[in-house]
Amino acid sequence: MNDLNKEIEQQLRNENADFVHFVDISMLDIRQNRGFPYALLIGIAINPHFIKTVHDSPDYVHTLSDEYAQAEKRVGMIADKLAGRLISKGYKALSQSDNALITENTFDFTTKTSVLPHKTIAVLSGTGYIGKNNLFITAEYGAAQCLGSVLTNAPLSIMEHEIKSSQCGNCNICRDVCPQKALNGVVWDMNVSRDEIVNVYDCVTCLKCLVYCPKTKAYMKRHITMK
Rank of each mutant, 00 (worst) to 15 (best):
I30T: 14
I30K: 14
D66P: 07
T63W: 14
V54C: 05
K73R: 12
Q145S: 13
P214N: 10
A143T: 09
I44K: 08
I173L: 11
N184D: 01
S95A: 14
S88P: 04
G90E: 10
S97F: 04
E15D: 15
K164P: 00
R74I: 10
K92A: 14
P58Y: 09
E104D: 15
M226H: 04
N170R: 10
K208P: 06
I42W: 03
K92R: 15
E162T: 14
Y141R: 07
E196M: 14
P179N: 06
G35C: 08
L101K: 15
I158E: 02
Q180G: 03
H21W: 11
D98G: 11
Y219K: 02
K217M: 15
K112Y: 07
T53K: 12
Q96F: 12
I42G: 08
V192E: 03
G126D: 02
I158P: 01
V186F: 01
A122L: 02
A17T: 10
A218Q: 13
M220G: 03
D195Q: 13
A17D: 10
T216W: 07
L101M: 15
L4A: 08
K6W: 00
I197Q: 09
D59P: 01
L156W: 07
D98L: 13
L28H: 09
V54D: 06
I46V: 15
G90H: 07
N199T: 05
G76K: 04
C168V: 06
I163T: 14
L4R: 09
P37N: 11
T225W: 02
C171I: 08
Q96I: 00
G148P: 10
D18Q: 04
K217N: 06
I224Q: 08
R194W: 02
G126P: 06
V192F: 04
Y129P: 08
C171V: 08
R194F: 02
C174D: 07
M226R: 03
K181S: 10
Y219D: 01
D108M: 13
N134E: 07
C168E: 01
S26G: 08
Y212P: 08
N16I: 03
E196N: 07
D59H: 11
D195W: 05
D56E: 15
P179V: 06
S166R: 07
I130A: 00
F19D: 09
D108K: 12
P58L: 09
A154E: 10
K92E: 15
N105W: 04
V23L: 06
N2L: 04
K89N: 09
M159I: 10
C174W: 02
I102Y: 11
K89R: 14
A83D: 06
G142V: 01
Q145Y: 00
L82I: 12
N134D: 13
T127L: 06
E15F: 10
E7S: 09
A39C: 12
A144Q: 03
N99A: 15
D80M: 12
